[in-house]
Write a protein that binds this DNA or RNA. Structure first.
Lengths: 218, 218
DNA sequence: GTCTATAATCCGATAGAC
DNA sequence: GTCTATCGGATTATAGAC
């Protein structure tokens, strides 16, 4: 209530995001944050329980940003375009906001938490579900090979995350445009399969129980 | 020379590895290391230039261990088995030594270095080359689809690294056995391709210039 | 709600005696 | 080659006055 223009929690959060995005996780301290906000460190504790709580709020922002990138997919008219746009959103977010990407996928303990706050985990589930839905409708449309959408989406996720991770850590050069090409070409290989033509014949009929249900956290 | 049993550098390195493996990168300090070795902190500086130098030595050990896992592949008699064994070695190492895996794939700046020591980078290249060779011989043997071995190996690497990373950060549950199954099944999907049967027909003849040569660092 | 002051730790690294 | 002592800095977090 009152003047939302000067909500202290909001000011702190905004500065916290700036600070994290510019200095990274290691360079993120309560003292530095206080300086950025323009108050002294103890004042922060009136609004947040401590460093961990602030970082959780920052992470929440990261999830919100990521969500906005992914949800663009729903505006496209066909299943294939929706899947494709979701993939573009994923890559755009990863490349435009590497620090946010990093905080989302770093384990909770790296942030000093034992587990993620529930609401954040819920956002992760929603994103994951949207992705699974896109895969599922592409299967029904005959664009993706039949299978369990969860399984297929895991393979796609791992492939994308692996590439992004390797690039961010400097193992694939520094040229963003070159990386985008690599990403796209690798995606085509993933769709077509790395095995030779008869690989399918050998393995398509393999033990195809609904696959020991893999409990994914997100 | 003299009594190798009490080479101080070796003692320090051994303790440094234990310390890193048990406490992680954040919990790794010169003071803690000194306590573990049984000396005081300044003594360490007689043998190593500082924290960065010690960490480089630890990382060197990680590369050596990784190399020993990967080189097992060469003992197998056929191209497919060699490729397969290399993959198993990769996964075994990642699951049995998550901290070593982590230090190898974290960017140099996270360790306080601007770039990796040359000898370590060379070990990385050797491993990478071995992997490319395995892929190449499988292509020639008609097991993998034709293509640039470097490209194909990148896709496989990204897929494997992505899965491992997601698992280590807790996004895929905690059950190692379940993860191994996921890893294997996802690998099969990667080989067979995620697209439906005619995907290949549509894309196999696509712009197939040797692909803007992607300069990989490793 | 914000301040000053401070507790209690931790860190990397160095000087100089032995 | 190792020690003591120390510099100079960082951090999270709290107590208590205003």
């Amino acid at each position: 209530m009152s003047d939302p223009r000067s909500d202290p929690r909001q000011d702190i959060l905004a500065c916290a995001c700036d600070l994290y995005l510019s200095r990274g996780l290691d360079g993120f301290s309560m003292r530095g944050l206080a300086k950025a906000v323009g108050v002294t460190a103890p004042a922060l504790y009136r609004h947040y329980d401590g460093r961990e709580a602030v970082l959780a709020a920052v992470m929440r922002q990261a999830y919100r940003a990521f969500t906005s990138y992914i949800y663009r997919a729903l505006e496209a008219p066909t299943p294939l375009e929706r899947l494709s746009r979701a993939g573009e959103g994923y890559l755009d977010f990863a490349l435009e906001h590497p620090r946010w990407y990093a905080i989302m996928f770093s384990g909770p303990e790296r942030l000093g938490m034992t587990k993620l706050p529930e609401d954040i985990e819920a956002m992760g589930c929603a994103i994951h579900q949207l992705w699974i839905d896109r895969v599922g409708e592409c299967m029904r449309a005959g664009i993706l090979a039949d299978g369990e959408p969860l399984d297929t989406s895991l393979t796609m996720w791992a492939h994308a995350h692996g590439l992004v991770q390797l690039f961010h850590q400097g193992h694939l050069g520094k040229d963003v445009q070159a990386f985008r090409r690599m990403f796209q070409e690798s995606g085509i290989r993933l769709m077509g399969g790395l095995g030779n033509e008869d690989f399918e014949a050998q393995n398509r009929g393999a033990p195809r129980e609904p696959a020991a249900r893999l409990q994914t956290t997100r």
